[in-house]
Design a protein around this nucleic acid. Structure first.
Lengths: 246, 246
DNA sequence: GAGTGGTCTAGACCACCGC
DNA sequence: CGGTGGTCTAGACCACTCT
């Protein structure tokens, strides 16, 4: 095929696959910024020498992967991940009256310290590398809902080490983007159940030893590399998660 | 379009949508049995008057929905749902050495009784309708792992009321199919965390009041109607579930 | 080799968006 | 109105499975 297709993609793969790999790499390398519009299908077809239907199929792959979204009449856009409610999806986050409430975030503590070995491994960093650790409380309607322990690479997130704690705001990921140019594309989570230690229980306002749901999250950037590790604790009696299986 | 398309499908919808609705209804009405092969795309195209590409797209919808699977060179098949491990996906089901173990099933009790109101509602049956209730223990390596309470419509599953308890085997869904001709297509599950009552704790071999994960499942047949409701309890310390979010 | 799904093309027209 | 994605067609050729 054309030159623009042969950029380090296995030529035995179907063209639409090679094309989607090409587009994916452009997105991951920041060639097209998150939220921005990519060129129209017709233009991509012309540039790559593929038929329009083939370009459409390549885009379809990335839409299914959650990297792009299409909007009829407007264009195709690099998707900005929206994690504003993702952790709270597992928990009931309504007030007394059942209304949805916007969770607040409050940084309890911040410190620079070597990354624990397990965290360093998950972040693909060398053990003992300098890390930035945040203790954070999330509240729904002024009541503690989640306690979070967050680890970041100190160098990349140096700006957060200086920022006044009051300026962190309720959402961290937009802050990462504003202050450090780090954009979260996706994340994996592991849910388990444990029991609250004394400190955790006190901060969450529950009885020591009470059951808590523990969510370990590893967040990745558009380059596919891990960026943030966090562990969250929430009262188990507030936990609910529904799923469809087939 | 052609007559075969206009079978009660909104004509304003795209043809591929109407077609997938048509195929879906045929599957749900048992026109093509689970596991069997549907006619080749070329034949469907000819019969319906649609282009091959349009038929392919309609099939694609159902493949994405999990109703069909394609096999290159062989054909397209009505998918048989395989729930053999679905409940255990949330739990660690390995032995001491980490090897995967086949869970066993043991019926503890069986009785005919009016469906509880909440169960009847979920099964879309009238309150007080006769139900068949099974108490079941699932074991991994001879150790209790899950306790289940299962409700079925008594009429449809009459064969199970007579069957010796030893003949139920380790998996219920294949039994439903063999004995009652009822095939499960999909299910929804709701996970919450609770604490074990005296009886539950004793049967699971855990301390009374210990945290348990509760899974409520509603299983549907190919006709889209609910068929079985079950609630399962498992020790929370064995619970683990991972998910990818974006 | 016959039959099936998988890929690809070239071109047409429609539906929606924003100016 | 022009530009975008959404649908649809008709046909070609490839890759795999089974016999």
């Amino acid at each position: 095929m054309h030159a623009s297709l042969s950029v380090a993609s296995d030529p035995r793969l179907p063209i639409y696959r090679q094309l989607s790999d090409l587009l994916r790499s452009r997105i991951e390398q920041g060639h097209w910024a998150p939220g921005s519009r990519i060129p129209p299908e017709s233009e991509l077809a012309e540039q790559t020498g593929a038929a329009l239907g083939t370009v459409r199929r390549a885009i379809e792959v990335l839409v299914d992967d959650g990297l792009l979204t299409r909007q009829q009449g407007r264009g195709t856009f690099v998707r900005k991940a929206d994690f504003s409610n993702s952790l709270f999806r597992f928990f009931r986050m309504t007030g007394e009256d059942g209304a949805l409430l916007m969770p607040q975030g409050r940084i309890l503590a911040r410190r620079l310290a070597p990354l624990p070995a397990a965290v360093a491994e998950r972040l693909s960093l060398r053990p003992g590398a300098e890390g930035l650790c945040l203790d954070r409380l999330r509240l729904v309607g002024d009541k503690p809902a989640l306690l979070e322990c967050i680890w970041l690479e100190a160098g990349r997130f140096a700006a957060l080490a200086e920022l006044p704690l009051e300026d962190f705001g309720d959402l961290l990921y937009p802050l990462y983007e504003r202050a450090c140019g780090a954009v979260v594309a996706r994340a994996t989570e592991l849910l388990t159940v444990g029991s609250a230690g004394a400190v955790t229980a006190e901060r969450l306002g529950i009885a020591p030893g009470a059951a808590v749901v523990v969510v370990d999250r590893l967040a990745y950037g558009y380059d596919g590399r891990p960026m943030e590790w966090r562990r969250s604790w929430g009262a188990a009696d507030k936990f609910a998660y529904s799923i469809e299986i087939r």
